[in-house]
Simulated scan of single mutants.
Amino acid sequence: MELNNLTLADLRQGWHPTLDGLQCNYCQAHWATGTPEKELVDHLTLVHGGNLAQLIHTDSRYNTLTTKQQDLLTAFSTGIKDQDLAKQLQVAAATIRHQKFTFREKAKQARLYLAIYDAVFDQAANQESPLIDVPTQTGPVDDRFMITEDEAASTLQHYFDFEHQPLRLKRWPKKQKVILTVLTRIIEEVPTNQHFSESAINQLLKPIYFDFVTVRRYLVDYGFLTRTADGHEYWRTTGKE
């Protein structure tokens, strides 16, 4: 699930709008605008076990819930009475009530933080171009990754021959920030949800730049591509989470 482009409403319902319809938050399932909500909910239930289950157990660095907390929230979602849940877990009912209180306090903190964040950065957004998305990095994040949309547009226009089909890179940049910006465009030529052999990924990159090996290496180093340990299989990294 790509959190960057989803609103709170999108997360709550389990699907989000696209240019030509609606799409599931968890797979490539797509529906036309105006599709009955029941059809979308049925898909989430049958294919993904329900949107709530996906949210609670989502595999994301932003999900800080412990396994115990996930289990408790799953139980609370069923409407089970505190006394009955306490018996199941062999704890006092007061312990269950305390857990609910803790969750409510966290929710209050989250709402306050969102209000502060929106007030600060909505105002800032009117003054500067927003940053583009780059893959989550395993190492330290520095100024290389602070790339505005305006900056990226200017850089890409400078380094790519957009009149040529297929896409062609005019020259390889020297600065790492520019390399990273260039990679954000190159990766768009690699289909999502597909695995490729090294030969196949080379065939995709070769028309873009003659030194496709360097391009491939940087795509892996910066997290745009993932590969197996033996380097025999490559696939596009999905999302920044």
Rank of each mutant, 00 (worst) to 15 (best):
Y117L: 11
N4H: 13
Y234L: 03
A94E: 08
S199T: 10
P140V: 09
K206V: 04
H43R: 06
Q70F: 02
L46T: 12
V41P: 08
L6N: 07
D143Y: 11
G223L: 07
E37K: 10
W15P: 00
F210P: 02
L22P: 00
E2K: 11
A32W: 00
P17W: 00
D133V: 15
F162K: 12
N126R: 15
F76G: 08
A29I: 01
E128G: 08
V182A: 06
Q54D: 11
Y234N: 02
Y218L: 12
I80H: 04
A86P: 08
H48A: 01
T138L: 11
I96A: 06
K38Q: 15
T214Q: 11
Y117M: 06
S60P: 01
I187C: 06
I147T: 09
H43L: 00
Q83F: 13
N193M: 12
H232P: 00
Q70T: 08
N193L: 13
T45S: 13
T184D: 11
H195M: 09
H232R: 12
T192R: 15
A53L: 10
A115I: 07
A29K: 14
V220P: 05
M146R: 15
P130W: 03
D122L: 05
I116H: 10
P140A: 09
E163C: 06
W31E: 00
K38I: 15
A94I: 07
P36D: 07
T155W: 14
F196Q: 04
N51A: 02
T35D: 01
E241Y: 13
I116M: 10
I208E: 03
V134N: 02
D71M: 13
K68S: 13
A124V: 12
R227I: 12
P191L: 04
T45C: 07
H232E: 13
